[in-house]
Each structure stands twice: as C-alpha cells, then as structure tokens.
Write a protein that binds this DNA or RNA. Structure first.
Length: 632
DNA sequence: GAGGTATAG
DNA sequence: TTTTCTATACCTC
C-alpha cells in the first residue's frame, strides 16, 4: 500500500554555500604561497582538512597525521586548534553575503556553510524580465537603484544542472513561446535567475574575500544543500524541474536525485533515525561502521528503499521513531525529507547567538585546585567570547565599517580602539560537568556521557569594561562558580570529572543595536515610545525594595529603556591579549564597598551603566541599577 | 530550572 | 557511534 507523497511547495529559491576546504582556505588567504603546495590543517592527531593539491596526492579529511606524512612527506601542516581565525573569517563571509539579501534570511551552518533565501530578489527580477530577449537581461541587486546589478543570460541556467542529461535539451524543453502559466517553466526561470545570482555572489566572494565556494540552488534547504555536492569543488549545481511527477510521464527530478542517497546522508536524518529506519527496512538490526575512518561498511539502505517500502509514510515513520525526547512530528518531517519536501525557513540573521559556551575535557580532574584553575581558564575564555560576540561599536555607523573590514584581525584591532557597548547580556550562567562513572564490579567502566548542571543568574560585573578579563574571571570563579560547583557536587571530594562546561545563556537583547539592518529602524521607533514610558518605570523601580547584599544580579530588558542616553563609553579591552587598564564607569557608585574600590578609576563625573551603557548623573544610578535587578 | 534526545559541522 | 567542541531544537518533569 503506497502512501501519497507530501505536497510540494516550490515557491522559494534557496542557495546553499559551502566554502571549499574552509580551514585550509583561511590559511591560504593569509599566505597565498600555500595554494600551490600540498597543505593541511591539523587538530589533535588528525588532518581536519587539506587543500586540493594535498588531495591530489592522496591526502583526505580526517586522516591521521602520521599517515598523511607518510603518503606525502613534503606536506605542509599547520595546527588549527585555535578556532578564532576561522570564526572571524566565517563571520566576515557571512556578513558579506548577508549584505546582498533583502529579506535578511541568511543562515550560517557551522563555520563554512550558509543558506540564503533569495526568493524576493528572484521574484522582483523575474517580473522585470523581457521574455522576448532573455539572453540580454540585467539582474537587479537593489530595488532603489536600478543601476546596481549585472548583465546575464536568462535563457540558460548558469553552471551545472541536475540531472545532467537534461543539459542539452534544457532550452528546447522550454521554448520561449510556451505559456507563462506553466509551473515548470516558471520554476525553471526562477531557478535560472537563482543560478546567475549564485554565480555573481560566488564571484564576489572570491574576488573580494578570497574564498571559493561550492553552491547548490533549489527551492528548499535540504535539496539545495545536497545538490551542491554534485560538483565539488568550486562548482554550482541547480536542480532543474520537473519537481513534480509529470502526470504519469516523467519522474520528479527531486526524487530522481534523492533516491540514490543513503538514508543517513539526508540532512536532518542523523545516526539514530537512520539506524531505526534501516532496521525496519532490512527486517533485522543494521550493522554500523564503527570506525567511520575505514571502509564503506555501511548497510546499503537508500532513500528509494525507504520511500518505496510497503506501508511507508508519515504514520509508520512516526511509530518507528517515537520515543522519549523525540519531536512529535518527526514522522511527518522525515517523510517530507525523503520526498525532498522541507518547509524549514532559512532563519533570519540573528544579531546575537542564543548561547555561548566553553568546555574542555580531561583525563583526570579530581583536585579542587586543579578544578579552580580550569574554571579560571574557562571563565577567561568565556568573558573574552562574550566581549567579542556580544558587543558592538558604540556608534552605529562604526558597526558598518567594522563589519566590512577585510578580515578578522582587522576587526579585532578595531574592537580595541572603538568605544563599545553591550548589545545583549546572558542572564544565566550554567556550569555543567560530566562525572566519570565509577568502576563496575567487573572492572569495566560503563560508558556514560551524561552531564549534570547547575545554573545561576549571571553576575553583571562580568560586563564591566573597567577591569581586565583576568580580574573578572577570578572574581567570577570565586564568587559564583565555586559556590555553583559545590551545589553541583555537594560530596566532599569523591568526584572525578571528565568534562567541564561553562555556558552563558538566556540572552537579553539590549535593543536598538541589532546588527540586523531591518531591525534598526524598528527599534528606533520603539525607543521613542520607551522614552515616554521611562519616567514611569524608573519611579516604579525607585520605590521598590532592593537587596544590596546580593551580588548576583541579572541584567534584563530594562536596558531597553535608557538606550537614548548613551553618551560615551570606553574602549573595549583588547581581547586576545588580555588586560589593559582602561578607565570606564561601573556600578560601584551605587554599591559602596567592595574590593574594587581601590581601583580609583571610575570616579569621573557622569556615570555610565556598565550593563547598558546608558549615561546618567550619579544620583540616578541607584534607581537605574535596581531597574536592572528587578526586571527579571 | 534541570535534564534528556537528537542533529550538524 | 564516542574523541571533541560548539551550537541548535524540542521534549518532559
């Protein structure tokens, strides 16, 4: 009994980018000589990626360094364990691509992949085409300036297409006199536009940023991503219509494409889901390739086998995959995926990540001194990351300049010299550990990777620019993390940890600064309203009780309301290098004695809240700070 | 809030 | 799945 395929919606055009051997490319950009040499990036004992010259000589991803050297003795290997440069380059490329979107639907997946929903740009251009002369078309990149764009030939798809056999007949299959209401013709036309836009973006990315990329063009995330793989590297592939079966005549190209993929290769179908499905289709437990490094020992279950399996459909899949913790609609979702249907939106660019976490693993971690030391290290990294990722230049215009800088290093230099302010604060700090399970009677250790955690309000002194990261980290460990650790591990000293994780989460936007260009105007409007409300809110706060003995305060959306009053703030401490003594304002003025009073560095007239950057006379700070406190 | 499951790079 | 380091979404109590 056959279940009907889910209904397709192919109204979008989505481009998936994958930068070619990204880690290697980052280094090659710093030192172009590497490009012509066999070159690889190492993490731990493995080659995480290598350039194509190295691949030509037999090297490959995830190869052991020893093997690589044996195979290719003159390979140049650099250590790539510090992710900072990759993160910066990734952000820079992302912002670059984002600059082309109208909808701001640009989603980063890891460091080296980006989805763009360019539907609006495509539809706009489709409407302006001259169907009598598609070959001499102009692609508009700016709705407000008709001169911005490029010439292109809209009578052909640019680059590769799938299926390949379709190539020769592509033009013939869509004669220009065919009626415009033909769905496939319309889709093909929009995909063509997408392919030319993709080519333009790839070219710009290469020319201006120095990164080549491989892209896929289609109508949803999953097939755009998968179809890009067809021509690697530095290629682009468009999945051409028909996307629906032609009334008994031809098969859907989507199905033709997906059917030959291993079930586990479909994005969204991970190991667990794939194994469960394999088990059912094979009628027995499916073997799995433990190593993954060697051999194609996978069970051979293709999408086609699953799709055509007797009774297969959303209900069966739902029953198969049900279990604690699994999304309720997983059956529906997977059924969609194997039919190439994926309604997932390309997420709008987010101003700020949802969480920032740092972790490290240990062979042995069982002494409190050692723990404290590691907490200190992790705290230092975390605070640096918070400053890097959650602050922006104070002047909104600087934000634009900064984001268009050439590379990550440049951005960091700017960070050190440009006044900065927080654009969001994590409200919660979470400490997680992974205790090593005790030995079982038989001497073996049960394999458990479970984590336990405790969380608390993020103390807001970590947002001060006045003190070195080191100092802040010390204080965070002593005042917050050690108590949290004791809560997590009440036992005296019996623990033995294999992992420690620090996570800053529950981000609270500071408003107004969304790097999201579309959001800025909106937030300005809100701010005007907030101005009207501000007096009320501050008075509310002013008469509320407060607890000055409690250090663990939480910054909150309250920040939003004092946005306009920013005057100036001091430069961000140079993050990668640690501390500098920079003068700024902190909350000391309201809190009386604490260990920082000796610092003597924030006594200037006119205070600025260290949380939101708002400047105000000292007498207003008390109420203001309580405001942060209370709005939790 | 705390913990779990699953996924991806 | 296990070696790791992040990040995300969704589920449950």
């Amino acid at each position: 009994m056959q279940v009907a395929a889910p209904k397709r919606y192919d109204g979008r055009i989505i481009i998936h980018f994958d930068y070619d051997c990204f880690y290697a490319a980052v280094f090659e950009r710093e030192d172009p000589k590497l490009k012509s040499l066999p070159f690889a990036v190492q993490q731990k004992q493995i080659i995480v990626t290598c350039n194509y010259e190295a691949r030509r000589r037999g090297l490959y991803k995830l190869q052991l360094v020893r093997e690589a050297r044996k195979k290719c003795p003159d390979v140049i290997i650099v250590l790539g364990e510090d992710l900072t440069r990759f993160r910066n380059a990734s952000k820079d490329n992302y912002n670059f691509l984002r600059g082309y979107t109208w909808s701001n639907k640009v989603e980063r997946l890891g460091f080296d992949e980006v989805f763009m929903d360019v539907t609006d740009i495509i539809d706009y251009n489709a409407a302006l085409l001259n169907y009598n002369n598609l070959a001499s078309s102009f692609f508009h990149l700016d709705r407000n300036d008709p001169t911005v764009g490029f010439s292109f030939d809209a009578s052909h798809v640019f680059g590769h297409i799938f299926p390949v056999a379709f190539q020769a007949s592509e033009v013939a299959a869509v004669p220009t006199d065919e009626p415009a209401w033909n769905d496939d013709r319309d889709l093909l036309l929009r995909l063509r536009l997408g392919s030319h836009l993709a080519q333009h973006l790839r070219h710009q990315l290469d020319e201006q940023k120095g990164y080549t990329s491989t892209v896929g063009i289609s109508t949803n995330k999953i097939i755009s991503k998968l179809v890009g793989n067809v021509n690697k590297p530095t290629g682009q592939t468009t999945l051409v219509p028909p996307y629906n079966p032609q009334c008994g005549k031809s098969e859907s190209n989507v199905t033709k494409f997906l059917d030959n993929h291993d079930i586990g290769k479909i994005p969204g179908i991970g190991f667990k889901t794939a194994q469960t499905i394999r088990n059912h289709v094979l009628g027995r437990p499916a073997a799995f390739s433990a190593g993954l490094v060697y051999g194609p020992t996978e069970e051979n279950v293709k999408v086609r086998d699953v799709r055509k399996f007797n009774g297969m459909g959303p209900q069966l899949l739902g029953r198969l995959l049900a279990g604690p913790g699994v999304p309720k609609d997983l059956g529906e979702k997977v059924w969609g995926l194997i039919n190439g249907v994926d309604d997932a939106e390309v997420a709008k660019a987010k101003e700020v990540p949802q969480q920032i976490s740092i972790e490290d693993s240990y062979l042995r971690l069982d002494e409190i001194e050692h723990i404290t030391k590691e907490l200190k290290m992790l705290s230092t990294s975390l605070i640096k990351r918070l400053r890097l990722d959650l602050t922006s230049a104070l002047d909104p215009d600087d934000v634009e300049i900064t984001s268009e800088e050439e590379d990550g290093a440049q951005v960091q230099v700017d960070s050190a010299t440009t006044p900065r302010r927080w654009i969001a604060h994590p409200k919660v700090l979470r400490l997680s550990t992974r205790p090593r399970p005790p030995l079982k009677p038989d001497g073996t250790r049960s394999r458990t990777f479970k984590r336990i955690s405790r969380s608390t309000n993020m103390p807001f002194f970590v947002f001060s620019f006045a003190h070195s990261v080191d100092l802040l980290a010390n204080r965070l460990v002593e005042e917050t993390l050690v108590p949290l650790f004791r809560k997590l591990h009440p036992e005296k000293s019996d623990w033995n940890l294999s992992l420690v994780n620090l996570c800053a989460t529950n981000m609270s936007l500071t408003a107004s600064d969304s790097k999201d260009g579309a959001g800025r105007d909106i937030s300005r409007m809100f701010r005007r309203q907030d101005d009207v409300l501000r007096e009320w809110k501050v008075e509310d706060v002013d008469i509320a009780p407060s607890d000055d003995s409690n250090d663990q305060r939480t910054p909150d959306d309250g920040d939003d309301r004092i946005e306009d009053e920013i005057s100036h703030q001091d430069p961000l401490e140079h993050l990668p290098l640690g501390s500098q003594d920079l003068r700024t304002f902190t909350q000391e003025s309201l809190r009386g004695k604490d260990e920082w009073d000796s610092d003597e560095e924030m006594q200037d007239a006119g205070e600025a809240c260290s949380i939101c950057g708002a400047a105000m006379p000292p007498y207003a700070m008390l109420a203001h700070e309580r405001f942060h406190d209370l709005s939790d």
